[in-house]
Design a protein around this nucleic acid. Structure first.
Lengths: 115, 115
DNA sequence: AAGATTGATTTCGGCTACGTAATGAAGCTA
DNA sequence: TAGCTTCATTACGTAGCCGAAATCAATCTT
């Protein structure tokens, strides 16, 4: 496995390179908040609820609801009622979302390797 | 100097951690595009023009103009007429902008170190 | 000097996200 | 079962960014 040494200046360059690649790809779909939410759902252990995400990210619940609307429509994740307590909505991963995150990881990996 | 080994999964976690920190800080000011523009200005050698940035980032010129309006108002960078060819606008760094980028670098460094 | 070209900005109508507050729906309590 | 509490969503008015096309200013061409 390829690996690198990473210092402050290089991590900044990594952020620059990846941001640049995302912008060039026309990746205007997700806001910073939406991407953060997506990563939490895919990198933190489930279950995820609206309230939980809102609290974890330090934003209001409508922010989460709207992000779920948008990303749900993109099929990047999925809402499901919690059958144990039907007030809750459980956010679940999807195949498309997993692919999206995987592509981001590939991009990061590629840019990190090029440092 | 602290340094780490970075693979695909870890770089993804780094992105997650930094995104999360930015969202939690209420860092809702800059869009992904704006941040990308800012980093280009601060990490790539000058001079930077509207046309040059637009071409480099693969966006239209009005996108750059508007981003400069916004970030100029935040004092993150500065417009200046090019005296050699007064059609051009040269984008210059500012103290506030440098501090902003530096804080991002610190954040990245901190999160990278914690991996 | 007239017209074409180049660089940046402004205008336009449209879309998306925002925060706050109100509403809806489910579960809990007494 | 009536009334709180909790979770999520919707409503509402505001603000910002979008792309495309029009405009403005400076320079170049001939």
């Amino acid at each position: 496995m390829k690996s690198i040494e990473l210092n402050a200046s290089q991590s900044l360059k990594l952020w620059h390179d990846v941001s640049l690649a995302l912008v060039r790809d026309g990746n205007r779909d997700l806001t910073q908040r939406q991407l953060a939410i997506l990563l939490v759902v895919y990198l933190e252990p489930p279950p995820h609820t609206v309230r939980g995400l809102a609290q974890y990210l330090g934003v209001t619940k409508p922010v989460i609801t709207r992000a779920l609307d948008t990303m749900g429509h993109m099929k990047l994740l999925e809402r499901r009622r919690d059958e144990k307590d039907r007030r809750n909505v459980v956010i679940r991963r999807t195949v498309d979302g997993a692919l999206y995150v995987e592509r981001l990881a590939d991009l990061l990996s590629e840019k990190a390797g090029a440092l």
